[in-house]
Design a protein around this nucleic acid. Sequence first.
DNA 1: TCTGGGGTCCTAGGACCC
DNA 2: TCTGGGGTCCTAGGACCC
Length: 448
Amino acid sequence: MYAIVDCDNCYVSCERVFRPDLRTTPVVVLSNNDGCVVARSNEAKKLGIKAGMPYFKLREQFSESQVVAFSSNYELYADITQRVMSIVKSSAPTFYRYSIDEAFCDLSGMDYTDLKSWGEQLHEKVMRSTGMPVSIGIAPTKTLAKMASHYAKKYKGYKHCCVIDDEQKRHRALELYEIDEVWGVGRRVAPQLHQQGVHTAYDLSCRSRDWVKRHFALPLERTWCELNGIDCVPNEEYAPKKSICTSRSFAHNIKHFDEVRTLVSKFAARCSEKLRKQGSVAATVSIFLSTNHFREDLAQYDNSSKKLLLTPTNSTQAIVSAAIDCLRAVWREGYEYKRAGVIVYDISSADSIQTDLFDYDSEVYRKRSELDAVIDKINKINGAETVVLASEQLRSESESDRSANTAGTKKSEPIKTLTFKDAIRHDLRSPNYTTRWSDILSVGQTED
DNA sequence: TCTGGGGTCCTAGGACCC
DNA sequence: TCTGGGGTCCTAGGACCC
């Protein structure tokens, strides 16, 4: 049997931990730049607010309906969910974190008859220790467990834990479940299934395996198996990422190369940090760049390029430099850019680097690793972006004026500091209650 | 004014081999 | 005039997930 433990409306619940006054208020959390709704409280869902709706179209409705919106505060969500996960981990024989707000547990070896109360107790423990409500679904396959957790959320009577442990329960659960809601059935395949007369999970489970094979691809065949109680989604252990991406939409359109270069440098530097954190190196660096697709009145441009590194690396200098080369290759003057990103892939372990016969210089490699290690340490202690590469700084806008003027007649211009967070908007962000000394709440005393 | 970010796996088709 | 058959590997794009 598997259990899935899933935080209810995760980001909203994180915000509510320190804002109990909002327990019954409709609350939403927005994406970067306060762009879209990414999390909704049940009250907000009832108002018809859908995930992915753009905030600027909802503002009026929000003020009328007294909906409270937060900018996303990932530092807070990462910390709260980490606490939740450590409790779940200590409560089950095996644990595998699936996403920021979900974890699977393999319950083999646990007392079968106790699963329901195990789940209820786990909910209580997590709630008491962290303030985060979780729902628990337990079933013979992960797809069925997901379905069970959905029922645990939907019906109060389950006390946050639903168990599917016999054929009758499985049938009933499948019958009441729309095919579109099944894990692994997305917006492309769902309409095709409807066309074939498959409307519920039960309908699919009753077709023959051959029928599924004939009409659909391998992933749906696996879903079919899972619905029929055949376990086939692998138990994934911790695995290093195969690709790492850092990208952002900009708060405003950007026309100037130097500004985009500054941001691309930051994205590349962040990718390098992530590589070092998981003990990896990458052999390919790529970037992508695009204008705002929603602005039909503006000229559109979309491009990407990649660069193979002769020796795989996680050096900030090497990866930033490759990313800027890529940027130069795709850059076109005259467009207003809205989004860019850096992706590193062809990832392998930093312990066994395949060096290049002609390119590899062990001395340079050693120095860069040491430098990166020191920078990582400083930034960990003093906060992100305390030390950055020069290319992550924006030269002052008068750089070109200065070179045009007689050298030395002007004082050198200050370098404009542009941090990662300046590039995006987050006007409605909550404090970092649990990760910054300055943001810790004080209780039981007043200012005066 | 204003529309997110980060991943994985599968597959068809092209390039290449003998 | 006329040009095979059988394979592998790589890659871009699609579909899905949270």
